[in-house]
Nucleic acid binder design. Structure first.
Lengths: 118, 118
DNA sequence: CCACCTCTCTACAGGACGTAGTACTACCCC
DNA sequence: GGGGTAGTACTACGTCCTGTAGAGAGGTGG
C-alpha cells in the first residue's frame, strides 16, 4: 500500500474530516496555511485517486473526490502491514500490547472481548 | 522513523536472524541471491547505522553491525506510528482488533490480560 | 614490496512527491 | 458573442530516498 507524502496526507485528512465529496477547489480552500496553486491540489488529488485512496465522480465539469476507505480502516491496514513484516507475529503483537497505553489497552480489550462474544 | 527500502530490509532481516554482530563481508555472504558489490552492502549498512537501526563496533579494521532494536520492537513501533496517524485512536484500535485473525486476537488478549494482572 | 581487505567518499539512475505551468474546453455575465 | 473564470489533462522540474557501485586511502600478511 505504501505511506503517503505530507501534502497527500494533509489532503486525505481534509477529505476524511468532511463527510461529503469535495472538489479540488474546495479542498484548496480548506488548505489555507499553504499557498498552493490550484493545479497542485488537483495533481495531488489525481495521484491519490490513481493510487486508490480516493474515488471521484463527476459533478458537472468538476470531479468530486471522496476517500475510498475511512481513516480508521487505513490506519488499521497500515498496522496490519507493519505486523506482516515480522517473522514472529505473536511476539510482535505481544510487544505491541505492552506498548499501548492503559486506556488504549482497555479499548483493545473491549473490542476483543466483544469479538469473542459474537 | 520511516520505513526501510527493500535491500535495507533484507539486510536487517539477516542481522535480526543472526544473534551475533556481523561484518559487511559476512552480511554480503549471507545475501547470496543478489549479486551485490561489497561496497553496496557496506553503504547500506552504513546508512542503516546512520539512521539508528544498527549499532556498530570496531573489530580490527572492520565494523561489526548489530540491530539497535529487535524486530518485534521495530514492528511494534511501526504499528504505534500508524496508530498516531489517526485522530481517533480508539476507533482505529477497535478496527484493528476486529481485523486481526482469531488466533492472533487471542495472543493480543492474553498479553493484555497479563498486563492488567501485573 | 605487493596483493588484498576494509573503510570512507562520491556518484548516478530511478522513483516518489511537492509544486506548478500550459493548453484546451465549457460556462456565465454583460 | 466575447472575455473572464473554472475546470481538466498533460507535462515538467527539483529534491530526496534508495539501490547500486566505483575510486582512493590506509593497513596487513606473506
Amino acid at each position: 500500500m505504501k505511506g503517503l507524502g505530507e501534502l497527500e496526507r494533509s489532503i486525505m485528512d481534509i477529505l476524511w474530516a468532511e463527510n461529503t465529496p469535495l472538489t479540488a477547489r474546495e479542498v484548496g480552500r480548506l488548505i489555507e496555511d499553504r499557498d498552493l496553486a490550484p493545479t497542485t491540489v488537483m495533481t495531488v488529488l489525481d495521484r491519490l485517486a490513481r493510487k486508490g485512496f480516493l474515488n471521484r465522480t463527476r459533478d458537472g465539469r468538476a470531479w468530486r473526490y471522496q476517500p475510498a476507505a475511512s481513516r480508521d480502516a487505513y490506519v488499521a491496514e497500515l498496522m496490519l502491514e507493519a505486523l506482516d513484516l515480522t517473522g514472529d507475529r505473536d511476539a510482535a503483537l505481544t510487544r505491541f500490547a505492552r506498548a499501548v497505553s492503559g486506556s488504549e489497552a482497555e479499548i483493545l480489550l473491549k473490542a476483543l472481548t466483544e469479538l469473542e462474544e459474537e
